[in-house]
Nucleic acid binder design. Sequence first.
DNA 1: ATTATAATTTTGATTGCTCAAAATCACTTG
DNA 2: CAAGTGATTTTGAGCAATCAAAATTATAAT
Lengths: 224, 224
Amino acid sequence: MLPSSTVENYLKAIYVGETHLVGGQKLVPMGQLASALGIAPGTATTMVKALAESGLVTYEPYNGVRLTSAGEKLAARVLRRHRLIELFLVQVMGMNWDEVHEDAEQMEHVVSDRLIERIDEMLGRPEFDPHGDPIPNAEGQLAERALESLLTCPLNTPVTVARVTDQDAAFLRFIESHHLKPGQTIEVEERDEVSDSVRLKGKDDQRMTIGARAASKLLVSSRA
Amino acid sequence: MLPSSTVENYLKAIYVGETHLVGGQKLVPMGQLASALGIAPGTATTMVKALAESGLVTYEPYNGVRLTSAGEKLAARVLRRHRLIELFLVQVMGMNWDEVHEDAEQMEHVVSDRLIERIDEMLGRPEFDPHGDPIPNAEGQLAERALESLLTCPLNTPVTVARVTDQDAAFLRFIESHHLKPGQTIEVEERDEVSDSVRLKGKDDQRMTIGARAASKLLVSSRA
DNA sequence: ATTATAATTTTGATTGCTCAAAATCACTTG
DNA sequence: CAAGTGATTTTGAGCAATCAAAATTATAAT
């Protein structure tokens, strides 16, 4: 039987959670999963045990959860749909990049393979969505890029914005209004630990200062 | 709170059921509703009582159910989405008219008003979907047409196919392959009660004979 | 008017998903 | 290493939607 929207959302959240793991960690903790899905911790535990039962995840009590290869395949399919839909809504439907997330969030669970294939074809088999997130291909593999955040990239060197890792509409509008969308070129002029901020030189040599937390969400590639 | 997909499906089925009522009937019987939704009769009774509780329908035990004006408004919104999506999938996405129903069936419950508005605009505020079914406008009103079926239209008179009232993929493919899609011109040459069939003259004066049951699903407008 | 038939409603139960709150476990920190 | 803190799991419950099967009602037929 095919997975419910709920199951798809769990798998997706675990998938994304795994990519956010730092160091030698291999398991996504329950608390993180629960808050990512906006549900109570106990609910996550219960569901994850069921997912483990159906072979989609590996569950280690008190440690966390990880996708099996079957689970990863399904999660990649969901993410593929989500990101193709986002790009489609922007590219074809002319929607703003800050207003497509919720629609994609719903549609990812219901569009047929046939329609997704049409969309993929129409967009020319794209590798990245409007936020720069990689789109898994039909086999579930995604294009990898070596990106740095504005907190780690070289100073006074032109870099190209490649990815914005936050879907919040207000944040995306801020990024857009300051010409910091993927594809645009900027330079980091100064980082200040004390004031927890980063000064940038953007379009038309415009200067701006943003917080470190916001800066960490902007990923760039070094070759401008 | 907004209605669930299930509630939307009930309202839609009641709405469509009401249009199929003949004579002085005012209520959609439970059995018809249940079979339209593919659920057990008892389930329909339970749900309809809940819908009545929330003011979306009027329920008369043992007689049937009818939409209130609030229910009708919601049902029209769902139908509007469904039909706009079908037309969009055919017109913009290049899908076949026999393969869009299932996708629309799912998407109708999840697309945002914003996206529907974009689709409506992109399609030029259309009044009819690919099957000739009228699309309710944003206010829920639908364009009315005086149509006759192939069982009642005048003989040996050019008529234009306007609507096909069956979503079955095999039937739609048959219609298409015989050039009987909405917009095409045909003539009814003969009706035979005994053989339960209708003989048509179609494109390039091609003759064909179809059963009365199929003929009743083809609606035409008299002025060719 | 009684009886058979068909439609409808009621009953009792199940599944999927969720929560709050209590219980348990793991990990510092003194 | 004992104690406390924070994360996790367990428990008991509820809601929405569903079914099968029994009970009931309406309708038509004899």
